[in-house]
């Protein structure tokens, strides 16, 4: 079954999505994880501040700071199912839906992209997590995005 397993998508900025398909009778149970970095403490004020309470980041000497980002996870579970054409005997109709799943209780559609074995959900492409590298590559991109964000702020 082409859907079973874990798929990883990235919004290009601060959020990675991991969705895992498990068989559940005629449909799928899908666990959706949203992963993002959050700074452990508030950023320091870019121009310093007179009010230490606003600024609880880890301060070193000489107004230098260490910022630690912690990966956070929001999880939820939903379902996906094959779409049954109105006329099941019509091969053309069946063909039309062969790469689509009704997702999240019918709220959206998953499209399976044959040519590169990816999923398309809400404008985001998901790659099959064939090795931990797929996830780690995205984590690196998310870390870069955070570094750039800090460079812009400070």
């Amino acid at each position: 079954n082409k859907y079973l397993g874990t798929w990883v998508g990235y919004d290009g900025n601060n959020v990675m999505y991991r969705i895992t398909f498990q068989e559940n009778g005629k449909e799928y149970m899908v666990t959706e994880d949203k992963l993002f970095y959050k700074s452990e403490k508030n950023y320091p004020s870019p121009h310093g501040t007179l009010f230490p309470s606003i600024d609880d980041s880890v301060k070193q000497t000489n107004n230098t700071y260490n910022i630690n980002f912690i990966l956070q996870k929001d999880s939820r579970t939903t379902t996906a199912r094959e779409i049954t054409p109105q006329n099941e005997k019509d091969d053309k109709e069946k063909d039309k839906y062969k790469n689509q799943l009704s997702y999240d209780e019918g709220r959206t559609i998953i499209r399976y992209i044959e040519k590169d074995n990816t999923l398309l959900i809400n404008g985001i492409r998901y790659k099959k997590e064939t090795s931990p590298d797929v996830t780690n590559d995205i984590l690196k991109q998310m870390q870069n995005a955070k570094r750039i964000e800090l460079e812009t702020k400070f």
């Binding site: 320091p44 000489n62 230098t64 984590l139």
Partner: peptide, 14 residues
Amino acid sequence: VIIDKITFDDSILT
């Protein structure tokens, strides 16, 4: 303000 070090904690994945 100088950002001296940026660290990332991914322990949630392990």
